[in-house]
C-alpha cells in the first residue's frame, strides 16, 4: 500500500483519532457538542469540495443531501423500527441514488444555470417535505425518548453517535484524498479546467459528473442521518437550510477549494469564528456582517483561500498538507 507511506494519510488518521478520543477524557460533553458541529461542517465542506473544487460545478444546494439523509433515517428509525446503523446506511445509498438520477439531468447545465438549478432542487424538496404528511409535514419527525433505550440509554447512544460522526468525518477526508490522487480525480480536474477539452481528450464527462455528484451525496446523507438522530428530531427548515448550504461554500473557499485539507481547515475555522461571533455580545448582532466582509475579502484578495496562501508562501508544505 503506497498510502501508508504518505504523511498526509497518517495526519488524517491522527486527526480523526484526536477528535474521537479527546472529549472522552473526563467525559467532556460540552467539548463533544462543539466538536460534533465542527465535524459535521468538515463533512459538508469536504464533500462539497468534490463538486466545487474538484469538478468546478458550484452546488449551491448541497444541503439537500444532508436533509434527505436526516429524514430517511428518522423515518426508518421512528416509523419502521430500524436500528440507526442500518437506517443511516440505507439513507446514504438512497440519497446517492437520487443524486445520480438527478445528476444526469441537472449536470447538463453549466455555471450559473447549474447553481440556480441546485438552489431550485433544494427549495423544491424543502417545500415538498413541508407538505408531505408521511414525514410529518412542516412539523417534521420526532423520535420518542425510548428509541435510545436499545442503545443503552440516551447518554451512551449520544457518545456512540458522536464516534460515528467522527468516523464519517475521517472517511470524508480519506475519500477526498483518495479521489484527488486517482485517475478519476484527474478526469474531474480536467472537467473543472475545461469540460469541452476534457471530453475531446477522452474523459467521459457525463458519467464522471454524475458519479461524483452521487458520491458527494453519500457521506453528507449519512452524517445528516446521524446528526438528526442525535437531535431526536428533524424539521424542514433545519434539514434543508439553504443558508448552511452557502455557508459550506464559504468554508470551502476560506480553506482553499480543490485541496484536501483546505475545506476541513476552513470548516473548523468557520465554526470557531461563528461560535466566537455568536457568543460575544458586542459582536453577535454583527456576526453576519463580519462573516460577509470576511467572505468578500477572501474572494477579492485570496481566491485560493488559506491553503492557496500557504502554498504560495511555503511551496514545500504541499508535500505534507495536500
Amino acid at each position: 500500500m503506497k498510502a501508508l507511506k504518505s504523511p498526509f494519510f497518517w495526519l488524517i488518521l491522527a486527526l480523526t483519532a484526536l477528535f474521537a478520543f479527546y472529549p472522552r477524557l473526563g467525559n467532556n460533553i460540552t467539548l463533544r457538542e462543539t466538536l460534533v458541529l465542527s465535524a459535521v461542517y468538515i463533512i459538508l465542506a469536504s464533500n462539497l469540495n468534490l463538486m466545487i473544487g474538484y469538478t468546478g460545478y458550484v452546488n449551491f444546494g448541497s444541503i439537500v443531501f444532508f436533509g434527505l439523509g436526516g429524514y430517511f433515517t428518522l423515518w426508518l428509525v421512528g416509523a419502521h423500527g430500524w436500528n440507526v446503523y442500518a437506517a443511516v446506511l440505507f439513507a446514504g445509498f438512497i440519497t446517492s441514488l437520487l443524486a445520480m438520477a438527478l445528476g444526469f439531468g441537472i449536470l447538463r447545465l453549466r455555471g450559473a444555470y447549474f447553481a440556480l438549478a441546485t438552489i431550485g432542487v433544494n427549495e423544491a424538496v424543502k417545500d415538498f417535505v413541508s407538505n408531505f404528511d408521511t414525514w410529518g409535514g412542516s412539523e417534521g419527525i420526532f423520535l420518542p425518548f425510548t428509541t435510545y433505550k436499545a442503545m443503552g440509554g440516551a447518554g451512551k447512544a449520544l457518545w456512540t453517535v458522536y464516534l460515528l460522526i467522527i468516523l464519517v468525518m475521517g472517511i470524508s477526508l480519506l475519500l477526498s484524498w483518495y479521489v484527488k490522487r486517482s485517475k478519476f480525480g484527474l478526469g474531474l480536474f480536467a472537467i473543472r479546467e475545461d469540460e469541452d477539452a476534457a471530453i475531446v481528450l477522452g474523459v467521459k464527462a457525463p458519467k464522471y459528473k454524475a458519479l461524483i455528484y452521487s458520491l458527494s451525496a453519500f457521506l453528507p446523507a449519512v452524517a445528516g442521518g446521524l446528526y438528526f438522530f442525535k437531535n431526536g428530531s428533524v424539521v424542514p427548515e433545519e434539514a434543508f437550510n439553504l443558508h448552511l448550504s452557502i455557508e459550506s461554500i464559504v468554508m470551502v473557499m476560506l480553506g482553499g477549494q480543490g485541496t484536501v485539507s483546505g475545506p476541513a481547515v476552513g470548516a473548523f475555522l468557520y465554526e470557531r469564528l461563528r461560535g466566537l461571533l455568536l457568543t460575544t455580545p458586542s459582536l453577535s448582532n454583527f456576526h453576519l456582517v463580519i462573516a460577509g466582509v470576511l467572505l468578500l475579502l477572501i474572494i477579492l484578495f485570496a481566491p485560493g483561500g488559506l491553503m492557496g496562501w500557504l502554498y504560495k508562501k511555503w511551496p514545500r508544505i504541499r508535500e505534507v498538507l495536500e
Binding site: 485517475k183 484527474l186 478526469g187 480536467a190 481528450l201 477522452g202 474523459v203
Partner: peptide, 8 residues
C-alpha cells in the same frame, strides 16, 4: 499530457 494518455 497525462490526461491525454490516461483517457486515450
Amino acid at each position: 499530457v497525462v490526461v491525454g494518455a490516461c483517457f486515450g
